[in-house]
Design a protein around this nucleic acid. Structure first.
Lengths: 160, 160
DNA sequence: GTCAACGTTTACGTAAACGTCAACTTGATC
DNA sequence: GATCAAGTTGACGTTTACGTAAACGTTGAC
């Protein structure tokens, strides 16, 4: 078929990519503004190629692991200008490792905060139990809260 | 002695508190602007009381665990208007628990990102080893990076 | 007397990643 | 031909926690 999804000639509209990757048109235009994407034009309208789609995937993957858009752009630039891609892969590897150590550091910081929080909670619980046990919020009250958060705020943890 | 540090009449200058808690004058004035602190005045100069000092401690503790200034203000307001403080303690406990679950969620998100990162690293390492083993950055190269980060960016992990 | 060191206020700057109008064009449809 | 959906380009708004001058007053040391 002419419209085979896998054929490299296949092109995409902005909304198709937005639907596929759950992004907003504003976001894609923003990435273009920042030089992360350079789709072709058909009159005024943007036409995204297969390569553009790959780039978008890389952008979103980079975001998921907490890279900034400018960092992502640097990596994408290397994909382009470099022939074999080896040097670029080395750079990417370096970036990824740096990001990994940064994330590990964040985890430790969070663990520290959690320790402080649990201590504070314990103090409050003890004192409330003494004075006004009726006001003591039961942990069970948070089942709703937990359930409400089951859908993914997966990005919120990475410095947004 | 009249100047006993523990005497409630003891007052503090802005710089004394800044030194004690490693904050900047700008920060304390900012907190005042936001209604978190209301030190007395001696002419133009701010005079911090014992209670102000306690409030500042609470502010900084709240920040350490990732509360926003507006959240902190809400809690502080309750300290004031409430007589026995029981209701306020219940509210604080609730906030703290919420923050704890949010932090736990962040940890999971970070873990997810780390998994993705390690997979990407592994792929890159394998391919680089094939093609250009000489470009493969050794993990040992990051000893400096690790050392450089040993001083506390403990706040950076909490959404700044 | 004058310089440094501290204090004050007002107010603009910053960084990230878009959201949110507003105003307009284009193509398709009834 | 009027309308409608979807696209476009600016350009300003949002959020957070201060940093950073600018311009000025007060006090103590020398």
């Amino acid at each position: 078929m002419l419209a085979d999804l896998r054929r490299p000639e296949r092109t995409f509209t902005i909304r198709q990519l937005c639907n596929e990757f759950k992004a907003t048109p504003r976001a894609l235009r923003f990435y273009e503004d920042k030089g992360l994407l350079t789709p072709a034009r058909e009159g005024l309208n943007r036409v995204y190629s297969h390569k553009d789609r790959v780039r978008l995937q890389l952008i979103l993957r980079g975001k998921r692991v907490g890279l900034s858009l400018s960092e992502i752009r640097e990596l994408l630039d290397l994909y382009d200008e470099n022939d074999d891609g080896a040097a670029q892969m080395a750079r990417s590897l370096k970036k990824f490792r740096e990001r990994a150590t940064a994330l590990e550091q964040q985890r430790e910081d969070i663990d520290g905060a959690l320790i402080e929080l649990r201590e504070a909670c314990a103090r409050l619980e003890r004192r409330l139990a003494e004075i006004r046990p009726d006001l003591l919020p039961r942990a069970a009250d948070y089942d709703q809260v937990l359930r409400a958060r089951l859908d993914g705020h997966a990005d919120a943890a990475l410095g947004k």
